[in-house]
Amino acid sequence: MATQTAKPIIQASLLTRLNKRYGTLPYYVIILIYALIAAVPILWMFLTSIRPQEDVYSIPLQYVPSQFLGLEQYFRVFEDRPYFLYTWNSLIISGITTILCLILGTPAGYGLARGGFRAANYVLIGMLGFRLFPPIALLPSFYLVFYKLGLLDQLTALIIANTYFNLPIAIFLLRGFFRDIPVDLEEAARVDGCTRMGAFYRVILKLAAPGIAAASIMIFLFTWNEFVFAITLAGSSPESTVLAVGITHFIGDTLIAWPFISAAGVVTGIPALIFVLFFQKYIISGLVAGSVKE
Score class of each variant (00 low, 15 high):
residue 147 Y to K: 13
residue 203 V to E: 01
residue 278 F to I: 10
residue 255 L to Y: 13
residue 261 I to G: 05
residue 90 S to C: 13
residue 3 T to M: 06
residue 294 E to Q: 00
residue 282 Y to G: 02
residue 173 L to M: 15
residue 22 Y to D: 03
residue 282 Y to D: 02
residue 144 L to S: 06
residue 222 F to Q: 14
residue 24 T to L: 12
residue 150 G to D: 04
residue 224 W to G: 10
residue 168 P to A: 05
residue 113 A to Q: 07
residue 193 G to I: 05
residue 79 E to N: 14
residue 43 L to G: 09
residue 257 A to L: 08
residue 225 N to L: 12
residue 108 A to G: 04
residue 155 L to R: 14
residue 79 E to I: 10
residue 262 S to Q: 06
residue 254 T to N: 00
residue 248 T to P: 01
residue 14 L to R: 10
residue 282 Y to I: 01
residue 96 I to Y: 04
residue 1 M to T: 02
residue 171 I to L: 12
residue 291 S to Q: 09
residue 192 D to N: 12
residue 237 S to G: 06
residue 103 I to P: 02
residue 204 I to K: 05
residue 177 F to P: 02
residue 194 C to L: 10
residue 219 I to P: 05
residue 67 Q to D: 11
residue 217 I to F: 05
residue 218 M to L: 15
residue 233 L to T: 08
residue 207 L to Q: 03
residue 237 S to F: 10
residue 109 G to V: 03
residue 26 P to A: 07
residue 126 G to D: 12
residue 55 D to K: 09
residue 92 I to A: 12
residue 260 F to K: 05
residue 151 L to R: 08
residue 25 L to M: 08
residue 291 S to I: 04
residue 52 P to K: 01
residue 96 I to L: 11
residue 155 L to I: 13
residue 194 C to P: 00
residue 45 M to N: 12
residue 53 Q to H: 11
residue 30 I to Y: 07
residue 144 L to I: 14
residue 175 R to A: 13
residue 24 T to R: 11
residue 55 D to N: 15
residue 146 F to G: 00
residue 150 G to T: 08
